[in-house]
Every structure is written in C-alpha cells, then in structure tokens.
Amino acid sequence: MSIGHTLLGLLESGPRHGYDLKRAFDEKFGHDRPLHYGQVYSTMSRLLKNGLVEVDGIEAGGGPERKRYAITDAGVTDVERWLATPEKPEEYLQSTLYTKVVLALLTHRNAGDVLDSQRSEHLRSMRILTDRKRHGDLADQLVCDHALFHLEADLRWLELTAARLDKLRAEVAE
C-alpha cells in the first residue's frame, strides 16, 4: 500500500496533525499493521518537500512542535492520479509453495503432505479472518473478504495441484 497517497487522501477532508493522521490511518487501514510515528513524519517530510502538502500551522506546546499539515492542489491531483491508476495484479508465478512441491517430488518426499499442511495453515488463517468478520463492522468484513478470497484462490490452486501430483511427479522425473 502507498502510505504517502493514503495519508494525502486522509488530508483531503481537512488539515490534520501528524498524530491525528496516524490515528485515522490505523483506525481505517492499519488493523494488523499500525503505522510507526517515524513512518508518518518521514512520509510527511517527503510530501512537504515534493509540494504535495504544506504546513498549515504550528502549535508550540510543552513537547516538540506540532505541525498541522494541509494538502495542496498538487497533492489532490496526485491522489486523483493514484486512484485512477489500476493496481497491477500480482503474478504469483514461481511461488514458494510451487518450489516446495517440486522439490519434495524431486527428492522423493511426500508432496501431498506439503500441500496438506499448507491447506491446514491457510484454513487456520481463514478461520481467524472469518471470526473477525463475524464480529466486525462492514469495513472489517470487506477487508477480511479481500484476504479470504485470496486465500481461497491459493487453496483452489492447491487442490488442483494435489489432483495433478502424479502427473507432476512424472514430469519432474524426466
């Protein structure tokens, strides 16, 4: 995920302090991976340098100065461009799992076991996501669904590979 673009997008609704930005980011997108303060401030410095945000005000307090950031017109254009650019689908070719399966076959180990334990691990993740979905709000449900569909796609590949193991074994032996 582009943290810079996401923070810029969050600024579109109005100027915010770095701390508020971090909180908004974590609340909406950072469920599993909250931002570090360092990431927020280094990202804001970069955006400032590139003219995508500007300092809207500085509060002097007991601690360090608190800058309030506002998005610039160039920043808004940048967010627009980012939203309009489709993400390149990941290709997943030569995945670790494929390598493990082929290696197991080459070394006469049980490739079915590799697939079975991977299925089990995937299902473990899917159970956690399903549970989070059941108890979460709509945003949680959508985020979890995205992950669930990807895991499901892996599992479909895994089942297909399990069904083709004999054929694959014959091919890698050649």
Binding site: D116, R119, H122, T130, L148, A162
Partner: peptide
C-alpha cells in the same frame, strides 16, 4: 474453503483415506 473456515478443525479425505490435520501436526 470459505465454508470450512466456519469449522474448528478439518479432516481431509482422499482416495477413501482420511487425515486429521489437527492431530497430524
């Protein structure tokens, strides 16, 4: 898999043989 994700654990059946994944780990 999305339906199986509602379970507590799974058993895999292949060629008439079963494998209890929890106890196999």
């Amino acid at each position: 898999a999305r339906v199986a994700a509602y379970s507590d654990r799974e058993i895999v059946v292949r060629d008439g043989k079963s494998r209890d994944m929890e106890r196999a780990v």
